[in-house]
């Protein structure tokens, strides 16, 4: 597989030619100085998948010291064969951009601003809200006296952005709480 991905290397034979030109007395210093380094040299390659249109183009992430330095298409993946569209090609900016959310945020009723919170506090608060609503509103029997165990006043919507494993958990959690308002992008 490694060989496959590297087949495109044959597009150039720069090293050999360099030698001959240098022997001819051509000074290549300015050209060599121009491109002395390659930013992905020595980077770890990690296979990922473009998070958009469901064609599933594979992307290689180049990682140095735990930081993403570049991304490009995975030439071995038989569907995209290294190619990417505008969105797929933008993974570096997408991951790095300054707009990313980095902390749990909370907006109190009537407040005009967000407050940063810890995960612990946030999950505790949410669990508290969920339990209160569920304990109050869970419908055990319908009008006909049939057991229905459903919670109509709480919902879970999203997301096709989640992995399969996360979807399985979301479904299980929603049903365990009795949630029936369950929906996501498949319906839009």
């Amino acid at each position: 597989m490694e060989v496959n991905r590297r087949q495109f290397i044959k597009v150039t034979g720069a090293g050999v030619a360099c030698l001959s030109l240098t022997q001819l007395g051509v000074d290549l210093t300015p050209v060599q100085a121009y491109t002395s380094s390659l930013k992905i040299e020595g980077a770890k390659e990690v296979f990922s998948i473009c998070p958009f249109c469901s064609v599933s183009c594979h992307i290689i992430s180049h990682v140095k010291d735990g930081k993403l330095v570049s991304t490009e298409g995975d030439p071995d993946y038989p569907i995209n064969e290294g190619a990417l569209c505008a969105k797929g090609a933008s993974m570096l900016s997408m991951t790095r951009n300054e707009h990313r959310l980095t902390k749990p945020l909370y907006r109190a009723p009537g407040s005009t601003q967000w407050e940063e919170k810890s995960w612990q506090w946030t999950l505790d608060q949410i669990a508290d809200r969920v339990k209160k609503v569920r304990d109050k509103d869970l419908i055990l029997k319908n009008d006909k006296g049939q057991a229905v165990n459903r919670l109509e006043s709480m919902f879970f919507i999203g997301t096709s952005h989640a992995d399969n494993e996360e979807c399985a958990i979301a479904h299980q959690l929603a049903r365990s709480l009795g949630i029936v308002h369950l929906d996501h992008q498949a319906r839009t």
Partner: peptide, 25 residues
């Protein structure tokens, strides 16, 4: 230049899905 002198395709050619962009000898 830093890619092609190391045997890689130019970034634009690498990304092209349809064979519109080609590069070689």
């Amino acid at each position: 230049h830093e890619r092609i002198t190391r045997g890689m395709l130019p970034a634009c050619v690498k990304a092209c899905p349809t064979g519109a962009m080609n590069f070689g000898e």
